[in-house]
Amino acid sequence: MTAKPAARRRPIVVGLDGSEADTAAVEWATDEAGRRGAALRLVYAQDLPSWVARDARLRARVTENAEARTAELFRWARDTVRERDAEVATESRLEWGTAAGVLLNAAREASLVVVGAAQREEHHIALRPVASQVAARAPCPVVVAHEAEGSSPDGKVVVGVDGSSASERAVGFAFEEAQYRATGVVALLAWGYELAVWPMVPEEGGSQRDLAAAALAESVAGWRERYPDVPLEQRVVPSQPVRALLDVAPEAALLVVGSHGRGWFPGLLPGSVSNALVRRSSVPLAVVPANQG
């Protein structure tokens, strides 16, 4: 079979680290590439300390070893992609530098950056800490893919909402993903504050739940019109954002949040929430920047 034409689309970058987490990243990214008609760019970062770089013979030896090691890793990754979807095109790159730096540089040309997270991360240095750094600064969405047991492949796309610009982009990404997957969107606004701490509330503004529901409806209205065929469910939950999103995660195919928040409702979906979900989510998580490149 011939590869799908993907020259006009930005590739999906997959960050590999040689751990068991790579399987989740490659499989998720392959499925996504098939949905989007995009190519995969497999990237491995190898840091080169300055004291090694200064010694020509030592640098040559380290380079040779890294190239041999990554050649085997890339061969495995390409085989995995081919077995899962033979029409997805791949390219592979060994890049020199820190993992976060390499992935941030690759993100400039990417539609998505995907890294993996395994269930037993105590046995290796996983990319999950790197994901937090990349998600906070990347110009494109960053997806932390998890092993299949934690998610519902046929589930909906769940997006956290707070009314900020980051939240608005996250909602748009969620609708786009739901359309690709032929599923629905669950837009969730979690609140755990009393009205007294929100000085913007008018004296006759109604109950906090009513205000939250109105803010949620306003946040999704434009995207709902743009994607009229995507089913939408709106939920207002009296809970902290991290807990609310983790509670709904088992019914989700994908969680989506903004990289930075603080919109109409104070304290909702700040960067600390996306960081907490990167560390704790058991399902695939997309962190979407407010201003995409």
Rank of each mutant, 00 (worst) to 15 (best):
G258S: 13
Q179V: 03
A148F: 06
Y193R: 05
E147H: 09
R262T: 10
A126I: 00
V142Q: 06
E218N: 13
E67I: 01
C140Y: 05
G267N: 04
R69N: 13
L277A: 03
G37F: 06
D247Y: 10
E218K: 14
G261S: 10
L195H: 02
N291D: 07
A212F: 09
A45D: 03
Q208L: 15
A214V: 12
S111V: 11
K156L: 04
A136E: 11
M1C: 14
T90L: 06
E122V: 13
A45C: 07
G293K: 08
V236L: 05
S239R: 11
A86G: 10
A107N: 08
K156G: 02
E121R: 11
C140M: 09
G271K: 04
A68G: 15
V134K: 09
D154K: 05
Y180W: 07
R93I: 04
R8W: 11
A29P: 00
G263R: 02
G184E: 01
A174R: 04
W264C: 05
R209Y: 11
G222C: 04
A56I: 15
G172L: 06
A71I: 03
R82K: 10
R93S: 08
R59L: 15
R59N: 14
A86Y: 03
V113A: 11
A166Q: 02
V143E: 02
R57W: 07
L268H: 02
W76F: 04
R75P: 01
L211T: 10
Y44T: 08
Y193Q: 07
W264R: 11
S132E: 10
Q179S: 09
P231G: 10
R209P: 03
L16Q: 05
P270G: 13
E225Q: 12
K156N: 02
P241Q: 09
E251F: 00
